[in-house]
Design a protein around this nucleic acid. Structure first.
Lengths: 153, 153
DNA sequence: ATGGCTGCAAAAGTTTTGCACTTCT
DNA sequence: AGAAGTGCAAAACTTTTGCAGCCAT
């Protein structure tokens, strides 16, 4: 678990940033919940371990990590931002509208797509965000059985 | 111009909603500026014609139109929401990070992509949002000449 | 020791809501 | 007339900022 942690820390250090307890904690939490956290969720988790940690620190840290390219800022649902540790390989999101489950996917088609669009519109593309929404197999099955879908834990 | 307007109005009417002056105005503005407006921009434009119109009405109207599927809610930049009249054919967005220009694109590749992902993950996909960010030809040229990029009007 | 980082509190910005009043049908 | 819609003001919520003190380096 600490291989990736050390990696992230070294980027911070190289950038001339200090490795504080708060930053260590947040980095670790983002890795454990390798998924997609929003600021409040992260705040809640962090305060279980360090009750004095403030929401400003969350935002400042996420902003910093985002600037350094260590985390991505996602705009998935209708609401606020979500963040994820920036993956080495590009990937995108498939969201279940019923239970909120988020599945990551990657596909060679996505690269073909961005290349085609870049060529056609003479853009230099630096970021691609592909978010698909729909219903997962579980929720479709539950719906067929007349059950309510349960939101993700 | 009123062909599309009548179309939108009839959807409202069918849904049992009233056609008020405010709604007519907002619908018309969204069509004239067929592009991607945020709530404040729309508010500003609307008040030029009806200075009493309130921001709540903007949000309530956009929410209503969104529910009826007449407008899409976009989460392009980092900030607040943008809205656009829902196009008949799916299209997606290419945003210049320098001048803010938004280009719409559609591609048969996008449909292949969603179909492939749906099959692979056993999802029923209802919405696809593909947003590419980068630099347009103009801004790249300006940068080469050492000029600052001008934000879009 | 010193400058970056944090917590706190307050502000700024976006979106929602309660309520009295207006207006479409 | 009656219900849906609106304006206004206030609240809720997310995110940012100023500042005094703290702590990695």
């Amino acid at each position: 678990m600490s291989g990736q942690t050390r990696n992230l820390r070294s980027v911070l250090r190289t950038a001339g940033c200090r490795i504080t307890g708060q930053r260590k904690l947040l980095l670790e939490l983002m890795q454990i919940h390798s998924g997609h956290l929003d600021a409040h969720e992260l705040y809640r988790l962090a305060r279980e371990r360090d009750p004095r940690l403030s929401l400003s620190t969350i935002y400042r840290t996420l902003g910093l990590l985002h600037e350094l390219g260590l985390v991505n800022e996602l705009h998935l649902g209708e609401e606020h931002h979500h963040y994820e540790i920036a993956p080495a390989a590009a990937h995108h999101h498939l969201v279940c509208a019923s239970c909120g489950k988020i599945v990551e996917f990657g596909s060679s088609l996505t690269e073909k797509l961005t290349a085609a669009v870049a060529r056609e519109h003479n853009f230099e593309i630096t970021e691609a965000s592909i978010d698909l929404t729909g219903y997962c197999a579980d929720c479709r099955a539950a719906r067929r059985r007349g059950e309510a879908a349960n939101p993700q834990s």
